[in-house]
Amino acid sequence: MMTTLWAGLTMGAIYAIVAIGYNITLTLTGVINFANAQFVMIGAFVAYWGLTQNDLPLPLVLLVAVILSALVGILTELIAIRPLRNRGGHTELVTTLGVSTVIAGLALVVFGPDPVPVNVVPTETFNVLGGQVRLNELLLILVAAVAALAVHWWMHRSKLGLAGLARAEDPEAASIRGINVKGLAILGLVLAGAFGGLIGPLVAQKTFAVATLGLVLALKGFVAMAVGGVGSILGSLVGGLIVGLVEALAARSIGNDFGEIAVVVVLLAVLLLRPTGVVGRGQVRLV
């Protein structure tokens, strides 16, 4: 039972990491970037290339992953988001879905369809609170929690973070106040990209590196964000952990197929009963 809980928390931490990325871009750039989870996949494959195939030192691999994902983030903003500014509608969703598909397709072309293993930290297993858990899993949970707190703190304390919050509230007013909205838009993608790329290798040790990783994480990460509360970084963490736990527990106690179905039930229940999410306050924004 405890082992299931640890597994659920681990997957939940991964969903939380994707949801945090969504929220960074949503706050700073003002769009939902469907390709967000692909940053994690890029990190995963960079780790496969660097660690598994070429035995490069970990810091170098992480650096490459961060830079590559951030570059992809910049490209995404320039190609798929900037041209649509002020056009309204759901066009960004279509174009970023396109970016996501291109990235997944390229991964498929380069690395093939089969999952490949990645080892970032030693594969040690611990017995914690009566359940089996691996070192990389504990690390993931820790990283997600620390990242959520750090990003939350940065958003509410730093000048740039506050500028982003102001932009999310009212882009026009923010730009009149001298906030560089275009610069923030790029920053939103760069940060989310670097963040996903950095943590991608660790994620891959749990999930393997596979071309479909981005799609699975994109959807679950979205559920985590919606459950926790759109726009709330701490909500992403809580939402992610809830989704991970619900999925693991339902799959274990009711049956394998019920993991995802339980997630949908939770999603619909939260959206209908408490559209601001379990952590979110006030009105639903940007919907």
């Binding site: 066009t91 396109g98 970016v99 598909t101 291109v102 997944a104």
Partner: peptide, 20 residues
């Protein structure tokens, strides 16, 4: 075939941006 996904993706981007 191999590039089908890439092609769909490019189509969505170009379609979304240029040929809305």
């Amino acid at each position: 075939d191999t590039y089908a996904e890439v092609a769909y993706g490019v189509l969505l981007i170009v379609g979304g941006v240029l040929l809305s």
